[in-house]
Design a binder for these strands. Sequence first.
DNA 1: GCGTGACATTTTTTT
DNA 2: AATGTCACGC
Length: 756
Amino acid sequence: MSASLLDSLNPQQREAVTLPHQSALILAGAGSGKTRVLTTRIAWLISTGQVSPLGLMAVTFTNKAAREMLTRISAALPINTRGMWVGTFHGLANRLLRAHHRDANLPQVFQILDSQDQASAIKRLLKAMNVDTEKYEPRKVQWFINGHKEAGLRAKDVEVHDEHTRRLAEIFEAYDAQCQREGVVDFAELLLRSYELMSRNEPLRNHYQARFKHILIDEFQDTNPLQYRWLKLFAGPSTAMFAVGDDDQSIYAFRGAETANMREFEKEFAQGRVIKLEQNYRSHGNILSAANELIARNRERLGKNLWTDAGAGEPIRVFEGYGDQDEAGFIVDEVKALHREGLALSDIALLYRSNAQSRVLEHALFSSGIPYKVYGGLRFFERQEVKHALAYLRVMSFPDDDGAFLRIVNFPARGIGARSLENLQEAAKSGGVSLWVAAQAQSAGKRDAAKGLPAFVNLIEKAREACDGLSLAETLEQVINISGLADYYMNEKDGQDRIENLNELVNAAALFEQDAEVFPTPTLPTSGEGANAGPTPMSPPQPSPLRGEGTNAGSTPINDEGRSVMESFLAHAALEAGEHQAGAGTDALQLMTVHAAKGLEFHSVFITGLEEGLFPHEQSFADADGLEEERRLMYVAITRARRRLYLTHAQSRMLHGQVRYGLPSRFLSELPENLMLPLNKRSAAWAQEPAPAAYSGGGNQGAGGFSIGQNVAHPKFGSGVIVSFEGRGADARVQVRFRDAGVKWLALEYAKLSAA
DNA sequence: GCGTGACATTTTTTT
DNA sequence: AATGTCACGC
């Protein structure tokens, strides 16, 4: 079977898949079969008996990629993939920390903070420390902390040059102490903590290094310094590292990714064993040429040249709309036409630079009745009602989590105001205990109170009793009712959606549980049962450290990592925010940010909002690196398309509640003109009139018979389009974007402007 | 203590 | 536009 597996590969792909037991770097261009090579190599290694399923680790960045890999492996091999170390950096770090939580100095039931949770934890801390939040903005503090953690640095490692930084380091330290107290761990901490665990604990390190014969890393260009160091800790003398990446698709520098890791890896591990996959199987020639031409403008590249033997295909369609609504209208019409020709909606993607841009598109799609699905944005597990319900679960199982406690102590409102909370926090602080313990103390002897703190303490204890022995889904159902969340949202005027989400949450829990039960515990070896991992001597307090912790004597069901299903579910909620959107299975148009589109492909792709300031984003203008990253982002966007590519932009759009006028993106002019097919904006039915309805209405009708969006001619500057105006009568001035002469303000009284 | 409305602030990308 | 913060009145 391995023969047939290899048959369909090209020579470079095959070479990569069948590399001997050595480290190597695979430079894999967009659409060159990267995922295929990775999964085929795993299948090949296992099926040829070179490694057992548990003797390898495969790391990805997104849950989607991890899932995809597992699916493909199970399709190729008759093995149970559960228990295999295939997952995201964060997922695997979580797994390691759960299994060795004692060595990592964490409670068995540590909770994972998502960015929202982290932000509120920081705000709470700043308040408690009496920090001036004008001087130390929570956002910046968060950025500071995460930045350092991602570089592998603790508060004590912060380089202090000035008072401000010194204070930040202090806050950093206090933040970590708070998290430790509350048994919570943020995203960066997952990695840093597991990194420290591995580097400090030699037996543990030796164990894993001996276990993993092969480590395969996807999207290597996106690793940050900490992740790279993290990987290296798992690599023993006999471990082969197989890194697949594309420096041209590095789009996560903003969160610490360093392409330098690729050069570093080449020196340290691959030692010259570099295989380039340059044949693109995805796109037609014109699309690929455009992408190549664009990315060639970047200076910092390892160098690669994608080619295809497919034909040139269609030209790239470019559309300019008057406003964002025209842009959306054009897209709706084109999508309809494509769909009519038989193309599945799910094979068409609408891409944008930032999430906020989806609104207008959604509106247009909704009113035209085209089914669509938005990825990203507000995720299921990030919704407040879901977070509330989960916080109840959390407080029930780990009441010392002050963050979860504060989230729900007075929600739904039960008469606990800021004053009582201040008192409580005071008491907790002086007693050196959690809010929950302090609340319990204050409520002693007031068991039947109907309001206030005692009522809350009562409620939690009652809920605990009521849920004893129940399944996860049943527990959630109970909690949603007992807590009063159900009643609360029932009476809210637009609470119906929230109720539905809560029901959906119960469903998700049931599904999750079912999944956990299909593979009962004993068949699921965890860390300890790698191909050749004998029991390794460990630090004393743990009897069988590699077997995961706490056999959990209680009645709660146990899953593969020896923790309760509830814990796993809470971790799942944080790590995999979830695309629990309606319409699974139905054919729907795909809407997402360019970032979210990485790794995906579609027959037809619309890249929207191609305007200066939007894409490239204005935040990137400051430095050359920022612009290069935007260009790589554009490269990623273009290479998503197999057959047809649309580039759209608008002269004006609503942004932050104001109309903004944007010039066409520089990326449009960086593409080869001969490949482009400009679509005349007037050819579209809705744009027949000189002044489109959207702009002739709300006071935009300019003086002197001109209007925004109108094409004009000037004797000296040539042809252009009116983008704005101010004043009336003799004072009236218009802003014109000329084709060649740039943007100019002209006084209507003097300028010899004529309609064109 | 709690709900309301005025006011200000924000506005990239994600595990 | 949308969300958070603050002050006020009940």
